[in-house]
Design a protein around this nucleic acid. Structure first.
Lengths: 324, 324
DNA sequence: TAAGCCCTTGACAACGTTGTCTACCAGGCC
DNA sequence: GGCCTGGTAGACAACGTTGTCAAGGGCTTA
């Protein structure tokens, strides 16, 4: 910038004004400055600008894993809105490890991101308190923060979705419905179990529930164990997209009534077509990002808790009747 | 940092030394400083550090669309290696628009990223020249840069993969093999067409080729047009993952011999199981990132051009014989 | 005992911006 | 003609670090 200034025969500050489109520069001078900028190939050093202005025009996003379609859909929506606001996105995958989540958040904070969107992996977020007190807006998406922290959250209607899935299966004659879900420490898994339990009511049987990280062997074993019961399940409710796919693989072509939480590509090309409770990761990202920018514009109201609707997409697998 | 210094009764520089783990600080002093840091909840301002040191510990990644599994797989691999090197990742989706690609790259450069990994959408990258001359390492992945720019590239063996796909179908008795691919301006699409043509040899018939952005209607129309020929195709080679899925949808359950470029989740659960030429987006990301860090460590050798192998995964759809 | 060394510490400038304040000039008004 | 106004331009400090250099004290060594 100093070089541009001397090349154009003006003061540093004048170049700064031109670069930032500030008023109060004579058009002729401005043109001369712009010419010098082009000639020297100058581009503003954003690090210095951030330091001076105290704002980084950067948003931090912590998710579980970009390679998971749920997160990458959310990611893309966040990215679009962030760019729209002239900011950039620093993102990181926690791999669902609380330690890594915290590291990422702290690294982002050290970079003084203007705001954070977090899909938490851990249960304790008290480490965020200094940042929150410093005024950095933080939005939790998909899962709420741990105890003692109350900030904006955007969650899906997990309980309602699970209820709907189970009722759908019941509506097609099923009474013995198994639930295969992720470890109960994971908020969404626990919520969906809650909905399952609520919808099962008196039919609830603990032996039809299996909650653990999804692995093909684990699912196979759980299914085998349940099949050996004297009242084996006639239908399956799977607790997330990964689980649905793993269960389909474990079923190896057997036609079993099934509804999965989370929609997935090709669900409509399988045989039978897979019925799901669909949530929309893109709108979750959009809502979270918009909430964040509202905060950045100064909205200081009480923490908001948004619940996004889910919808049942009946494609066939949920309508298979129980074996006679 | 100033506050920490006065709280600990030492000079600014001593705090800096402690924070950076530099030697030459008495353990007792260091402990006092650390105590003050904890008490005040201090964390280093990375913006200032970047400005002062001239390095941002940030890598820029430009891809087509994070929501596409190919890109998100690549993204995740890059991210892991970047974090491993103590850096963070700024990423952006170009949406396959050259203008947006350029904007992203230029914004990243203004932030003085230490290096860039780009999956280009455009054909002209001369705008990168100033950055390259300034010494910023840039790696192109999946597609090469436009004319006049010679930098490190990591590409898949597109031609070889297409050849293998076509030969596989031929080996099962097919002579009339259609190719459905993306617009020929897209490098990978053009390369795969090249491989297709090479493998078809004398059997090549222009009327069996359709290249345009994938849309269900477009694919349906192309298939209908080809089916009406007096020598209709008995097999399909689809030019990328999106195309394979779209074609399967357009076929609506008809059992047609098919090999697709790019593997995809659930390919093994469809009926028939879908045979593909698989590339590994994660290893592409890993190789690109590792190459980048080698450059950052000072390797100034001539531009490298890595070609990653692809492999044919025969699952069944490619082994369907032609109708009798 | 003096010279030299290492260990620890601190003062200071610089990184490249931007916000604030001041200076200058031309023109209009009394 | 003097005063004020508005439009332009520049000087300077500050943002929070880190690299360079120098200083002080205790120790070893000749």
């Amino acid at each position: 910038m100093k070089d541009v200034a001397s090349a154009a025969g003006v003061a540093l500050k004048t170049v700064s004004r031109v670069v930032n489109g500030e008023p109060g520069v004579h058009p002729v001078t401005a043109e001369r400055v712009r010419a010098a900028i082009d000639r020297l190939g100058y581009s503003r050093n954003e690090s210095a600008r951030m330091l001076r202005r105290g704002r980084t025009a950067t948003i931090g996003l912590v998710i579980g894993d970009v390679a998971d379609p749920f997160y990458s859909g959310l990611s893309r929506a966040v990215e679009d809105i962030v760019i729209e606001h002239g900011c950039l996105l620093l993102s990181g995958s926690s791999g669902e490890e609380p330690g890594r989540e915290r590291e990422l958040v702290e690294t982002f904070c050290a970079r003084r991101v203007d705001g954070l969107i977090v899909v938490p992996a851990g249960e304790d977020h008290t480490y965020l308190r200094p940042e929150l007190e410093a005024g950095t807006p933080v939005i939790f998406a998909d899962r709420p923060p741990g105890a003692g922290i109350d900030v904006d959250t955007v969650l899906a209607d997990n309980v309602g979705g699970a209820v709907r899935a189970v009722r759908h299966l019941m509506g097609h004659g099923h009474h013995r419905i198994a639930f295969l879900g992720d470890a109960p420490e994971i908020f969404t898994a626990a919520e969906r179990l809650k909905g399952y339990r609520e919808a099962m009511g008196g039919l609830y049987d603990e032996r039809l529930v299996s909650m653990r990280p999804p692995s093909l062997e684990g699912v196979r074993a759980a299914l085998a164990r349940m099949a050996a019961l004297d009242g084996p399940p006639s239908a399956l409710f799977t607790g997330n997209g990964r689980y649905t796919v793993t269960a389909l693989r474990a079923l190896a072509g057997r036609r079993v009534a099934l509804v999965g939480f989370d929609d997935f590509e090709l669900a409509d090309l399988l045989d039978p077509k897979v019925s799901v409770v669909a949530q929309d990761p893109a709108s979750m990202g959009r809502v979270a990002a918009e909430l964040l920018f509202r905060r950045l514009r100064g909205d200081a109201g009480p923490p908001q808790h948004v619940e996004l609707p889910v919808r049942l997409v009946a494609r066939g697998s949920g309508e298979l009747p129980p074996p006679a």
